[in-house]
Simulated scan of single mutants.
Amino acid sequence: MSFLKDEGGQGAAEYILLFGGVIVIAIAALLIYRAYFTQNSGLEASQDIQSVRGSIPAKV
């Protein structure tokens, strides 16, 4: 019954689950932001950044 107490593969399984979760999050982010990555999307990240920077009040 010593094989029931063996936890040698537990760490590897946890790393596989963690790595899989990171991959899922990365794919979801790419799907959400894919409009910024396409050439003819009509969206321009630089214009968005300038718009956000312009809406922040300057410190005096």
Score class of each variant (00 low, 15 high):
residue 3 F to H: 07
residue 3 F to I: 06
residue 6 D to F: 05
residue 6 D to E: 10
residue 6 D to C: 07
residue 7 E to W: 08
residue 8 G to V: 08
residue 8 G to W: 04
residue 9 G to K: 07
residue 10 Q to F: 11
residue 11 G to Q: 15
residue 11 G to M: 11
residue 13 A to W: 10
residue 13 A to S: 14
residue 14 E to G: 04
residue 15 Y to N: 05
residue 15 Y to S: 03
residue 15 Y to E: 08
residue 15 Y to C: 06
residue 16 I to P: 03
residue 18 L to P: 00
residue 18 L to E: 12
residue 18 L to T: 13
residue 20 G to K: 14
residue 21 G to Y: 03
residue 21 G to C: 06
residue 22 V to P: 00
residue 23 I to P: 00
residue 23 I to F: 04
residue 24 V to I: 12
residue 25 I to S: 03
residue 26 A to T: 09
residue 26 A to E: 05
residue 28 A to C: 03
residue 29 A to W: 14
residue 31 L to F: 15
residue 31 L to W: 14
residue 32 I to N: 02
residue 32 I to G: 00
residue 33 Y to K: 00
residue 34 R to V: 09
residue 34 R to W: 11
residue 35 A to D: 14
residue 35 A to H: 00
residue 36 Y to L: 11
residue 36 Y to A: 00
residue 36 Y to V: 02
residue 36 Y to N: 02
residue 36 Y to K: 02
residue 37 F to G: 01
residue 37 F to H: 06
residue 38 T to A: 07
residue 38 T to V: 10
residue 38 T to N: 08
residue 39 Q to T: 12
residue 39 Q to N: 05
residue 39 Q to P: 11
residue 39 Q to R: 01
residue 39 Q to D: 15
residue 41 S to L: 06
residue 41 S to E: 15
residue 41 S to G: 15
residue 41 S to F: 10
residue 41 S to I: 13
residue 41 S to R: 04
residue 42 G to C: 04
residue 42 G to T: 04
residue 42 G to R: 15
residue 43 L to G: 01
residue 43 L to S: 05
residue 44 E to V: 15
residue 45 A to K: 03
residue 45 A to P: 02
residue 46 S to P: 07
residue 47 Q to N: 09
residue 47 Q to V: 05
residue 47 Q to D: 04
residue 48 D to Q: 13
residue 51 S to A: 09
residue 51 S to D: 06
residue 52 V to G: 00
residue 53 R to L: 14
residue 53 R to I: 02
residue 54 G to N: 13
residue 55 S to M: 05
residue 55 S to Y: 09
residue 55 S to K: 00
residue 55 S to T: 09
residue 56 I to A: 01
residue 56 I to R: 00
residue 57 P to A: 03
residue 57 P to D: 07
residue 57 P to L: 01
residue 57 P to T: 04
residue 58 A to V: 12
residue 58 A to P: 15
residue 59 K to G: 05
residue 60 V to C: 11
residue 60 V to E: 10
residue 60 V to N: 08
residue 60 V to S: 13
